[in-house]
């Protein structure tokens, strides 16, 4: 059995109050394990991104409990949550969110700098990560000079720079063509297994489903199904 990284217990997120209240998450309970790629599927408005924000310590749930490595995050200060993200979480965004004024390797190195890596190690470590993702020859290029797939791989390299135990990807293939999207999904799966980190991918792209070890389906803020490839399905 893989080690549990993150546990959610009856998590609820409500925006607004009274009659205008919107319940984005309605009692989600799940755990996320190392070395596993979890696909988070569901229609628009089902709460996928909100769930990802809660998992990434970016959003406090209105109710319920989030545990990282068994430790409850309830009542944790903003600074403490920021520290947790820096130490343990990596993000990959739909629109890459690369820094347009920095070259590819510098985008990766910023994440290393955030973790306090020594200056002299920034460039070699960033280049090694880009090489791992097949982008060694694009290291000196600015994001505007890269294709969508290349940008996303730079974003993945940046997310991996901090050696996260939890990698959260929000629609990482949505802006990519089919082949490139599948290549990115394959990279995520390979890295999850190779680095033994937990990967959660929010997507409504059915072509990436085969790259998940587990598929969670959300509907109206509730967990509709929890299936493992080659394993049992839980409703």
């Amino acid at each position: 059995m893989s080690a549990t990284v993150l546990t959610l217990e009856d998590v609820r997120v409500t925006y607004g109050e009274g009659a205008a209240a919107v319940h984005a998450l309605n009692g989600i309970s799940l755990d996320v394990r190392r070395g596993e790629v979890t696909m988070l599927m569901g229609p628009s408005g089902s709460g996928k991104t909100t769930l990802l924000q809660v998992m990434g310590c970016l959003l406090r749930p209105s109710a319920g409990r989030v545990r990282l490595f068994g430790e409850s995050l309830e009542g944790a200060a903003l600074a403490a949550l920021t520290e947790l993200r820096r130490r343990h979480v990596g993000f990959v965004f739909q629109h890459y969110n690369l820094f347009p004024t920095l070259k590819a390797w510098e985008n990766v190195a910023i994440a290393l700098d955030l973790r306090g890596a020594p200056r002299e190690t920034l460039r070699p470590r960033a280049l090694a990560l880009l090489e791992r993702l097949g982008l060694a020859d694009r290291a000196e290029h600015y994001p505007a000079e890269l294709s969508g797939g290349q940008k996303q791989r730079v974003a993945i390299a940046r997310a991996l720079a901090g050696q996260p135990v939890l990698l959260l990807a929000d629609e990482p293939t949505a802006a990519l063509d089919g082949a490139t999207g599948q290549a990115v999904a394959a990279s995520l799966k390979a890295l999850a297994h190779e680095l033994d980190c937990a990967v959660v991918v929010v997507s409504h792209d059915p072509r990436v489903l085969p790259y998940g070890d587990r598929v969670l389906e959300l509907e109206d803020g509730r967990l509709k199904s929890d299936r493992r490839h080659g394993g049992n399905a839980h409703a």
Binding site: E83, L84, R87, F91, F99, L114, G162
Partner: peptide
């Protein structure tokens, strides 16, 4: 702002 928000998401403290 989106870049600053990205930095925060990546774990940059306010002082950064």
């Amino acid at each position: 702002l989106a870049e600053y928000a990205t930095l925060v998401a990546l774990g940059a403290p306010t002082r950064y």
